[in-house]
Amino acid sequence: MRGLQSIWLVLKKDVVVELRNREVVATMVLFSILLVVIVAFSLSIDETRARLVGSGIVWIVVLFAGTLGLGRVFEREKENGCLTGLLLSPAGPGAIFIAKVLGLFVFMLITEAITIPLAFVFIGMSIPTEGIWILVLALLLGTIAFAFVGTLFAAMFANARLKDVLLPVVVYPVVSPVLIAGVKLTEISMGVGLESDLEGWLRLMAAFSVLFTAVPTWIFGKVMLD
């Protein structure tokens, strides 16, 4: 019960700060839209090509916008040794970690909810109504896995020089299964991929999300505390 309360308090703090200055979500949304435009230009997109590469664009946006968000997760905590203070508080490292993950998860979901429909409109992709739940499920699972893995590394690299370079180098290989499965699921939801593979990809995505909520939470305490 106490754990839940601490999670809620840290999460509330992050959300309130975000509501006051709207730094993270605004930059993420702007960046995502720019990314869609740039990718659409560089692939000289048309309707047939949109069907083939559209699902990839969706996940590039999720991944890159997420990375942008990752850089900010512990940015405010760096000043005045705030991170150390948080970790020393009676909340415990697990609660802090989960609160931070949830914060990133919420910001990423808001970004996705704004950007992905826009991307569909811009690129001219279409999705059948019965495919929407697959897309939403894939995005939810993918985002939660990305948030857990990413937040762990963001915390570890918070004080490293070269943080901005190191973070993608380590995070992208780890989340690449999510990216592959996500792209395939999105293809299936748009009616492009093989319907028979749906269960396999969903199972992979779910297994990844479950394991990578548990392992980072365990490691966080081991790595961050002296």
Binding site: L152, F153, V170, V174, S176, P177, F208, L211, V223
Partner: peptide
Amino acid sequence: RMSAGVAVIGLPAAYFIHMAV
């Protein structure tokens, strides 16, 4: 500690990369 954390995450990640590919 940090690099050990990367290695520990890496092992299950490699397994999943294997399955996905």
